[in-house]
Amino acid sequence: MSRKSVPAELSASVPVSPESSQLLVVFGKFGLAYHRWARSHLPVDAGLTVPRATMLLGLATKAERVSMGELAEFLEMSPRNVTVLVDGLEKENLVRRVPHERDRRATLIEITEDGKRVVEKTLLPSQLAIAELFEDLTPRDRKDLIRLMMKLLTSLQARGVEAPA
């Protein structure tokens, strides 16, 4: 995903309400706290870090094998870091490298049956525990939050920021 800077003419000329400034602070605090919450619910005994868990979950949802470049983009990591992650997961037989059918230079990554078991028995229950936070909201609040977050995602996309599908 590309990161674009805000054009100088926009950053200085757009008036910002006090509520928008407050939302900036609250979103920042929430983002950090939510990241800690999610990390605290990863099973420690499974040896999973957030990037490893994210890679396994992402691969489990894909119907097809994924290139290393696609993984790097998905995880917002350098290709070198993705290679290190894949190396570790491959040693544990959670993912495997497969040669591309048509491009001899490309290598595809797929989740193994062992990887699918880790996702099903370890990561999915962990995700449910993380999602439990949102049960503190009423059903109406959850629907409103989804609607508002989707609206903000659309606003980011309109400003040229790539967002996950």
Rank of each mutant, 00 (worst) to 15 (best):
S11L: 09
S126Q: 06
R105E: 14
P51G: 04
L108K: 09
V86A: 12
D103E: 11
R102V: 04
D114S: 15
L108V: 05
D136S: 12
V6A: 05
G28I: 00
A165S: 11
L124N: 05
A12V: 09
D136L: 13
Q127H: 07
H100C: 11
N81Y: 09
L153R: 08
L89Q: 06
R80W: 04
A163I: 03
D114K: 12
E90M: 12
D136H: 13
G88S: 12
S155L: 12
L89H: 06
M77I: 00
N93Q: 14
L123H: 00
L133M: 08
W37C: 02
G28Q: 06
K4V: 07
K29R: 08
L152S: 03
S67L: 05
V16G: 05
L133A: 14
T122P: 01
E9F: 13
L123E: 03
V161W: 02
P51Q: 09
G69C: 05
S11M: 10
R117C: 06
T138A: 06
T122K: 10
Q157R: 15
R52S: 15
M68L: 10
R39G: 04
A63E: 12
A163G: 01
L156W: 00
L124M: 11
T54L: 04
T122L: 14
A106W: 00
K143T: 07
F74M: 15
G88N: 13
V6C: 12
L23W: 14
L133F: 11
M55H: 00
E162K: 06
M149V: 12
L48M: 05
D136M: 10
D136I: 03
M149T: 14
M55G: 03
R140E: 14
